[in-house]
Design a protein around this nucleic acid. Structure first.
Lengths: 218, 218
DNA sequence: TTGTTAACGCACTATCTGGTTACTTTCTTA
DNA sequence: TAAGAAAGTAACCAGATAGTGCGTTAACAA
């Protein structure tokens, strides 16, 4: 420890302190890392590096790797549920509303593949992180209510048959898009065709809309 | 290290040598381990222990952790495709054949949840193991041909509409069962009901059959 | 200016993990 | 029955990996 004259760092960037920005960078990096490698395969060191943050900050803000994952997952659910609400389907003609929802769901999975991988990871862990989240439950209720409303209006105007369980319908709408995306790699091998070309995606979406409209038809 | 008189192990089990049995035990343990924790989360030491085999044997027979995973995955695909062929749907009335297939697919996922988790894991890794398998491609072709045959017969007898892509139909049949199972944990939270009770499962299967039959109806 | 708080970063560790080395035991066959 | 091949084992290793201890620095209030 010699007391040298420390050479003034020529342009020692004045480190800007911004807790919110750092948190956001960590969450963003974590979302990508967990989406790519799962919870088990994701590396805390890699997240810190990508986020241009120190690993210490991750533990400071999120407590643990699992705490970080939980926050990432919760945000992912809030994001999709928020986007769904923005569709304002309660003022759209029932059949059109359903078509819009099928289209939105498919596009959302296409443009946000991390959502799918995060949910898969969470199911591998038997949803033990999601169960702690109250926010997700609240948002989910609104979502189910939305589809319930569409169904009721459709039955009232006679364009839908009665007796359809909104939860089953919801699951089916999600399923026909989700499965296509999550299994796009093995699917392209099993069916010996590239499932992700523009044409293939358009064809699949048309098929999905047809599936749902036929399902609810009187 | 005193040179004691080593007490003769009273019944030192004569170690039985059986390569095939050991391989089988390793594969069985690996299937369970990978299904539970994914490829990244699965531990080779745990597999060895569960298989009552030495870790060295895993590397002797399968070369690496990924080699082991690849074999497990390939077997899983061969298993489901073999079971499907055993249905002998080519001699069943088209609508009944489709219903049988929907029912079989749903039940298979229910009774073999490892299949789903293994496929999910493989998709997380962009199917880089499955692409090496030639067997899977051969089996898959037979499977698609089977559904194609059902569709053609149904169109010929006028019970199905023409123009349905057998691949899209296949994907949909898989999707509505697969999604329900793979997301049963998060699903039970989001929809605030236990999706795995006997009643819930029966209801879902009925809904799936309805979905497919309506999809192909003229 | 000074004191306090919160943001930040380095360097470390205990433990784990896939993979290997060097060896013993059992089976087969010439 | 000798010899070699195949099956099996324990101990070990190098590199990772989640998590921490502790010191430093920016921001801001008094």
């Amino acid at each position: 420890m010699t007391t040298e004259i420390a050479p003034q760092e020529p342009a020692a960037k004045p480190r800007i302190r911004d807790a919110e920005a750092t948190k956001a960078r960590i969450l963003d990096a974590a979302k990508k890392e967990f989406a790519k490698n799962g919870l088990g395969g994701g590396r805390v060191d890699d997240i810190a590096e990508k986020a241009k943050a120190n690993k210490r900050m991750i533990y400071h803000y999120f407590g643990s790797k699992e705490g970080l994952f939980q926050t990432v997952l919760e945000n992912a659910y809030v994001d999709i549920r928020t986007a769904e609400q923005k569709l304002k389907l309660d003022h759209v003609e029932p059949r059109q509303a359903l078509e819009k929802l099928v289209r939105f769901t498919f596009d959302y999975y296409l443009k946000n593949p991390e959502f799918i991988t995060l949910v898969n990871s969470e199911n591998l862990h038997r949803a033990k992180h999601l169960i702690k989240s109250e926010v997700v439950k609240v948002y989910s209720r609104k979502f189910v209510a939305m589809v319930e409303d569409i169904l009721e209006r459709g039955v009232a105007t006679g364009v839908f048959r009665p007796g359809i369980d909104p939860v089953q319908l919801n699951i089916t709408i999600a399923a026909i898009g989700y499965y296509y995306m999550t299994n796009r790699f093995t699917g392209s091998i099993v069916f010996e065709r590239d499932l992700m070309t523009k044409d293939a995606l358009e064809e699949r979406l048309r098929f999905n809309i047809e599936t749902i409209l036929r399902l609810v038809a009187p």
